[in-house]
Amino acid sequence: MTTLPADHFDADSTTDEVLDGLDLNGRNVVITGTSSGLGIETARALSARGAHVVGVVRNIDKARAALAEAGASEVDLYEADLASLESVRAFTDRYVADGHDRIDVLIANAGIMACPQGSTTDGFELQFGTNHLGHFLLINRLLSLLLNAKAARVVMLSSSGHRFGDVSLDDPNFERTPYDAWMAYGRAKTANVLFAVELDRRYRSQGLRATAVHPGGIVTDLGRHLTDETINALIEARSGAEIKWKNVQQGAATSVWAGFVADADAVGGRYCEDCAVAPVIDDVAHTPGVMGYALDPDTAAGLWTLSEHLVGETFSAGEIQLR
């Protein structure tokens, strides 16, 4: 069966429609956050087409039960808590020691949203530390396996919430800035885009491409921290703009589209939504689109340097160098 052209899909497309006709046998895929919502659907859709899928989760028992219910019990599971650098390091060491020699697609799906102020195990602001730094460390420590694939892709799940704020290279942990749950989420989601921009710039000549995606508005466990106060703040921040809701099959579609269907040169270093590359905008009320600051190459390079400093490791061509 011949698949439809990549530009045929839109906001209503589902994972099964996007992947229709694809044979993914022999493809090695790593997905973080496969215990609920979009992660489960992404893992199900890819494993159903023959991909060998590894899920990285905080709670293996919860993930195993949820995947089995979704018909994806063949997904292999590893434990890691993105809010702990020690846990991320333990996972990557274990994954390599188990003999995995190649990753074709890595989908950074896990995340938290608009939570009360808190800190990771290592003392970083919780949303920045979990959504960005945890993935930054995990992906870089597996970089040699991505490069071994010769034509690998990294898909970072960002959000339209990146419009709530640019990253702060001077105050990433809100030590001098009054904490706001949505601002912190916005900074973390902008960081996800900027990480994809710099990762793509550094390694596209070696065949590794990276992109960021906005899945859309989906009711999942991601919203578990929302309160009446934060919901009202969200409505106010959006200036009354209506949210177009998706189901999980539609929400996960852009992730698999960017990872397996879209042209690598089209999506590399870009931000995608509704199964398309999003336009660059300068008005937070405009949709679809990505704010220009989220694609700024100088900020992306600065964030990379800051992130290496914060996690205590530098990365070059897949080699880990301890500071």
Rank of each mutant, 00 (worst) to 15 (best):
L19Y: 05
V256D: 12
S168E: 06
Y95V: 09
V56F: 07
L147W: 11
A68S: 13
F91N: 11
D282G: 05
D171I: 11
S158K: 03
L145W: 01
I31G: 07
D61L: 03
T92S: 05
W304T: 11
T211S: 09
A151L: 10
A191K: 06
N59W: 01
F124E: 11
R94V: 00
K189E: 08
Y203A: 05
A188I: 04
N192F: 01
Y78I: 07
D101P: 03
L142S: 07
D101C: 00
N192H: 02
Q127Y: 01
W245N: 06
E74Y: 00
V267Y: 04
I231R: 12
G37C: 13
S87K: 11
R141W: 04
H132E: 15
T299N: 03
R224L: 13
Q206C: 00
L46C: 09
D221Q: 07
M1N: 09
D7E: 13
P5Q: 10
I60C: 06
R27S: 03
L38R: 00
T305Y: 01
T130W: 12
F260T: 11
A6L: 03
R141K: 15
T287V: 07
G216Q: 03
P5V: 08
A212P: 02
G129Q: 04
H52L: 12
F91G: 12
D81N: 12
G318A: 04
A149F: 05
I320D: 15
E175M: 07
C272R: 06
H100K: 06
T120K: 04
A210L: 02
T227G: 01
